[in-house]
Each structure stands twice: as structure tokens, then as C-alpha cells.
Amino acid sequence: GAPPLPPYSAGGREVTMKKGDILTLLNSTNKDWWKVEVNDRQGFVPAAYVKKLDSGTGKELVLALYDYQEK
């Protein structure tokens, strides 16, 4: 199953993602919540729920390892 959710501390809205989604990583300075862009929406997802990909394009991409439903 998915890892436990860290307390929400990102101070911005969250976004929903599905397992297998490829998201653009915008900011990973917060260790628990990373800012991503998905379907032209920006928001935060739990860092433990995604994995960085080596895209080779200069853009940082992450793979959704679990479904996440915004609150």
C-alpha cells in the first residue's frame, strides 16, 4: 500500500494524480510535499508518492507510484 501521508505543510493547493502518471516537477525544496504540474494544473503531491525520472530533456519529471486524491 501507499506510505503514510506526511502532515500537510506545503501551503498551496494539492493536485490529484493516478498511479503511472508522468508529472513535471516544479519544486522539490519541501522534503514532504513536491510541487508538480499535471494537465496544466499546478499543485502539491506527497514526495513519497512519486519517483524522479531521468528525462534527458532538462525538464524534471516524476512518476506517480500511487493514486493521490487532493483533499
Rank of each mutant, 00 (worst) to 15 (best):
N27L: 07
S55T: 15
R41Q: 12
K71M: 14
K35P: 01
L23E: 00
M17W: 03
L63R: 06
A2Y: 12
T57M: 12
K31S: 12
Q69M: 07
E60W: 09
V38Y: 13
V62S: 02
G58Q: 08
R13T: 11
D67A: 04
L23Y: 09
V62A: 15
T16M: 07
Y66T: 04
L65M: 08
K71Y: 15
V15M: 14
K71A: 14
L26G: 01
K19C: 06
G1Q: 11
V50M: 05
E60Y: 08
K51E: 11
L23F: 07
K19R: 11
Q69W: 12
K52A: 08
Y8Q: 11
P46H: 01
D67V: 02
G43N: 02
I22S: 03
K31T: 08
T29W: 07
T57K: 12
Q42C: 09
S9G: 13
K19V: 08
D21T: 05
R41M: 15
D54P: 15
V38F: 14
L5D: 05
V50Q: 00
D32T: 05
Y49A: 06
T16P: 12
T16W: 12
D32F: 14
T29R: 09
L25I: 06
Y68T: 02
T16S: 15
G58H: 12
D40F: 11
V62I: 06
G1F: 06
D21L: 04
K59S: 10
V50N: 00
V50T: 04
D67C: 03
K31H: 11
L25H: 01
L53Q: 04
A47V: 04
A48I: 11
A10F: 10
W33Q: 00
P6A: 01
A47Y: 02
E70V: 11
L5R: 12
K59N: 12
G58R: 08
T24D: 07
V45H: 00
E37A: 10
F44T: 02
G11R: 08
S55N: 13
L61V: 09
R41L: 13
R13Q: 13
L61N: 05
V15D: 01
N30G: 10
V38E: 04
Y8E: 09
L63G: 02
I22M: 06
V45I: 08
P6S: 01
V38D: 09
E37M: 09
S9Q: 12
V38P: 00
A47C: 05
G1E: 15
P4F: 06
Y49W: 07
N39P: 05
V50K: 00
G56K: 13
A47H: 03
R41D: 11
I22A: 03
A47P: 03
S9D: 09
G20P: 00
P3Q: 05
D67W: 03
